[in-house]
């Protein structure tokens, strides 16, 4: 019985490896927020493509329509995560980009570095880099979903979730406001702007990589919060000192969010176009 179980399992793995070779490469196999992050991060680490421009951000920047920026752009923004994950991924990959765009809005969010470790260290990541059958991107349930979605899309575009809902729930706005009402101490600012952000920034600049900081639009009440204004001032000082660009947002009311911080799809496209015009 046990021999049969292990033999059949090996056969299933071989058969699935063959099936994967015949699958269309453009199917979307994402299943969840964590899965999406891992697939994106692993793709970046393992890809042989020459990405000239890398966007590094939080979930806010996932609303950018990266395709419209050009083929040589890759968006390393992760939902539920921070800019530090994207920066760590750039450091973990041998091939470096020419330009890195760093979102400056949520610099105080912390990371445990688990995403980069997960996709670049340990036995599991080595196995996944060697054998594609074990990668999150190729999980059978995700693949089935990707094939079904592709078949449905061929019959016309599907309605986007947030193209309908634009009224923000006050309780959700309240939760999001936590970040903007927290009082960060001078030590917090000093740690971020003289150490935490400086180390990777100087490493990137030393390698001849151009760095651009940018802000993402927020709900107007958050845009004018003390935290955002203080961070903007510090980034301004930093970018002047280091001689790098900083793209600010001064018209938040022109954009719409679905929860106070994440742009709805049409605003995401609008802001991407604005960003593109400034490059």
């Amino acid at each position: 019985m046990l021999k049969k179980i292990f033999l059949y399992t090996a056969l299933l793995l071989i058969a699935y490896t063959v099936v994967l070779r015949f699958l269309p490469s453009d199917i979307d196999t994402d299943q969840s927020q964590w899965g999406t992050n891992v697939i994106k991060a692993r793709d970046y680490i393992l890809s042989e493509e020459d990405f000239k421009n890398v966007i590094v951000g939080t979930s806010l920047s996932t609303r950018l329509v990266t395709d419209s920026l050009g083929d040589d752009f890759v968006n390393l923004s992760f939902s539920g995560s921070t800019i530090w994950d994207g920066i760590e991924l750039i450091e973990a990959r041998e091939q470096k980009p020419k330009r890195v765009f760093i979102e400056s809005t949520f610099v105080f969010k912390k990371t445990d570095g688990s995403l980069t470790d997960y996709v670049s260290k340990g036995f599991s990541s080595k196995l996944k880099s060697t054998l594609p059958v074990f990668r999150e991107k190729n999980q059978p349930v995700g693949v089935i979903k990707g094939l079904v979605t592709k078949a449905l899309k061929s019959g016309g575009p599907l309605a986007s979730y947030d193209s309908v809902a634009v009224e923000i729930n006050p309780e959700i706005l309240e939760i999001q406001s936590d970040y903007f009402v927290e009082e960060y101490t001078d030590e917090n600012y000093e740690w971020i702007f003289t150490k935490k952000l400086i180390w990777p920034l100087e490493r990137l600049l030393d390698q001849g990589i151009e760095v651009v900081f940018y802000e993402m639009p927020l709900h107007p009440s958050f845009c004018e919060s003390e935290v955002i204004k203080d961070v903007r001032w510090h980034i301004d000082e930093l970018t002047k000192r280091e001689g790098v660009s900083f793209l600010k947002v001064n018209n938040c009311e022109a954009y719409q969010t679905n929860d106070g911080i994440h742009l709805v799809s049409h605003s995401g496209l609008k802001f991407t176009n604005k960003l593109k015009s400034q490059l």
Partner: peptide, 19 residues
């Protein structure tokens, strides 16, 4: 059918585990 079923479960553990 049991050996094949257990093999399918083991296969899914190897290729489709969540976080």
């Amino acid at each position: 059918l049991e050996p094949l079923l257990y093999a399918c479960l083991l296969f899914m553990i190897l290729v489709n585990s969540g976080s």
